[in-house]
Nucleic acid binder design. Sequence first.
DNA 1: TAAATAGTGTCTCTAAGACAATATAGA
DNA 2: TCTATATTGTCTTAGAGACACTATTTA
Lengths: 239, 239
Amino acid sequence: MQRYDPGAFPPFAVTVDLAVFTVREGALHVLLVERGQEPYRGAWALPGGFLLPDESAETAARRELAEETGLSERTAAGLHLEQLRTYSEPDRDPRMRVVSVAFTALLPDLPEPRGGGDAARARWTPLGRATRLAFDHDRILADAHDRIGAKLEYTCLATAFCPPRFTLGELRQVYETVWGVELDRPNFRRKVLATPGFVEAVEGGPRRTGGRGKPAALYRAGSASALHPPLMRPEGRQP
Amino acid sequence: MQRYDPGAFPPFAVTVDLAVFTVREGALHVLLVERGQEPYRGAWALPGGFLLPDESAETAARRELAEETGLSERTAAGLHLEQLRTYSEPDRDPRMRVVSVAFTALLPDLPEPRGGGDAARARWTPLGRATRLAFDHDRILADAHDRIGAKLEYTCLATAFCPPRFTLGELRQVYETVWGVELDRPNFRRKVLATPGFVEAVEGGPRRTGGRGKPAALYRAGSASALHPPLMRPEGRQP
DNA sequence: TAAATAGTGTCTCTAAGACAATATAGA
DNA sequence: TCTATATTGTCTTAGAGACACTATTTA
């Protein structure tokens, strides 16, 4: 920022890439698009695109998210979106310098992406099959997965995976799916309810979680954002 | 990343900004440089600069860190450097679109930056007096401070603030300085020593921490990077 | 001596983990 | 009936917080 010589700086293209996750049928899914042009034509990639001249990366990410999922921009404006990190290796795009700001977004289980334009090529893909992606998107996706796993430990973010009203069973399944572990039901319940502002009880009738079993009480996301103390995943470490 | 039209993308300048912290005399200090050109001529700013055509942001950050501190690139290569986030508001630079990838670095207490070039304008500044910085650097600095405070809780990063051999008193002062709290000495000691790989005892003679008092045993950083369970700061929350 | 820091030991309380037992649904 | 889920409750244990006490240095 010191040597200031307008016009003499090396020009870069700046893009955003989105790692958009959801939990469906007990498996973590990520939103992928099929590339229509070279390079990597026909390969799957994270959705994203170039920043417009007067957009911040956050604004561009929210716009791309709305375009790719078919959500209204108004709905997309309320979704949880968070910067992951920026990828800037000189060779990450075969034909020019492209610096990409990556974001993660967590969505409740939504219908298959509809709508015109880019969304037509978008699909929810189980994380295990989201491999051999274009560019360095395998790496971005792995980083995003690590990040959300870690964030579930010390934030209330898991509720972003749930519909507006959810059962504690559904919330627990979010943790189990993202972490790939089984959690003790009674202990999970105790921990969640003992954390002020994590969830709030909702009147309305109870609902079944898995088809069978006793119907469960409904909750909505609370006002807290951090978890103190954290809800640590079992087995200590994971790096 | 989808609509690919080489040459038709909006061009951006890409820079790195560095929030370099150290603990001296019981206070958190940050490395600042005085700007020599417009805009913000004469104002203090975080060190940083443009990416060279074949550099990643990480490489550029390490190069700038070496230039600004006067450290050899070889020494700088071993220092802890971590991406904070990317700042891309359209109006963050008054004359053109500049996207900046911000990094944090943690250094042990070093002599005043020496060496030629940019380092001549660099100074360690107590965090409380690092205000009214150029561009959006107040915001970046605040984000960086938040981040390192949080990272001390669940990583072994505090040792990056210490010299190669340090006492537990020095390590505790790092926590107390960054968090702005007092920690119980015996409990801190118990926690650190009970975490495998956090620190390792070193033979050598004991050393005084604060001038007075019983000399303390020396330790060096261990091989662990994460802290399980975390070393939470008192009073629960801080946002 | 007093003051400051290092280090040991102890007690309490919270919270996590394990797990038994009961309740209510569908197949 | 059996099975699956929800919900309540109990017991044990690890770990954090508070704090007393001793040890060793400088002023």
